[in-house]
């Protein structure tokens, strides 16, 4: 069977080369830069130093950026979960007409790209936007209130953009539950609320964890939405990397920020596996 083995390796060569040479090799090299010295003329010098990390972790400006990013990511995750759960539950349990269309309407925004939806929020939240117009018409306010360029706007749009990423893992987790578990709980005398809290919710845990990990990491690395809706002053880690790589050209520091992002990603994935194991124990 050596012939098929050789064919197998041949078949995975393209994807292997792409991932190794174009993804992993440059990424590792880039992350390595964070321990080298910055030089204005040669971009980086091969002198090991901790100054990039020191700057990132102790400079109040960078600290502020890190806090803001974590705050936005955490808030977005919580709100996405709250909005997504009823929808996912409904989709998983609804068997009536138009189910396919309802699913499609959740997937379609995902496919339309980040820019399209971010722009939609600018139209909604701007000074002459829908919300301000509506509030003035209702007489609730006299002049347009500032919604754009606030963290609120960023979080609102991020929740919207990332909602499908939360809905689908939840949907899978809820759909996988045996319906008769809930029925069994009811025959044992449990109220609807108890059934939800003690049966449905714990069993959706893998979906909750998976969706939260996705949303958290995607928010933490976001650039476009925070920049367009948050304005120039609202720096987050993603924008910081962008500026450092393309404007300031301080690659070692950019690498340190990237490493922090990877570390963040890594720790939520660890949390994810903890969470998944917790399900087995529950």
């Amino acid at each position: 069977m050596t012939e098929t083995r050789r064919a197998g390796w041949l078949f995975v060569t393209p994807i292997g080369l792409l991932y190794l040479l174009i993804l992993l090799a440059p990424l590792s090299y880039f992350l390595l830069l964070s321990i080298f010295k910055y030089s204005a003329f040669e971009m980086y010098l091969f002198e090991p130093t901790a100054e990039n990390y020191q700057r990132l972790l102790f400079d109040p400006y960078y600290r502020g950026v890190i806090y803001r990013t974590l705050r936005i990511a955490a808030t977005t995750t919580v709100f996405t979960l709250l909005v997504a759960y009823p929808l996912a539950y409904f989709l998983a349990r609804y068997g009536g007409p138009g189910r396919g269309v309802l699913m499609f309407l959740v997937i379609a925004p995902l496919m339309s790209g980040v820019i399209v939806r971010t722009y939609g929020w600018i139209v909604l939240l701007g000074a002459e936007g829908t919300i301000n117009t509506a509030l003035i018409w209702l007489g609730a306010i006299q002049r347009p209130i500032q919604i754009l360029r606030t963290e609120f706007a960023v979080i609102m749009a991020m929740v919207h953009i990332l909602l499908p990423y939360m809905v689908f893992p939840l949907f899978s987790a809820i759909v996988a539950q045996e319906r008769n578990l809930e029925q069994a709980a009811r025959t044992l005398g449990a109220s609807n609320l108890r059934i939800f809290l003690e049966v449905t919710l714990p069993l959706s845990r893998p979906g909750i964890v998976m969706g939260s990990v996705l949303v958290f990491t995607l928010t933490a690395g976001a650039i476009v939405t925070p920049q367009l809706l948050g304005g120039k002053e609202m720096k987050v880690l993603g924008i910081l990397i962008y500026d450092l790589v393309l404007t300031t050209l301080n690659w070692p520091l950019a690498s340190a920020v990237a490493s922090l992002l990877v570390l963040l990603q890594f720790s939520v994935i660890v949390l994810y596996f903890r969470g998944a194991r917790g399900r087995a124990a529950a």
């Binding site: 993804l23 990424l27 880039f30 933490a220 690395g221 962008y242 790589v245 992002l261 990877v262 990603q265």
Partner: peptide, 10 residues
């Protein structure tokens, strides 16, 4: 599993 920003800078 890798944030796309990082893929891009790489």
């Amino acid at each position: 599993m890798i944030p796309h920003v990082l893929i891009s800078i790489s």
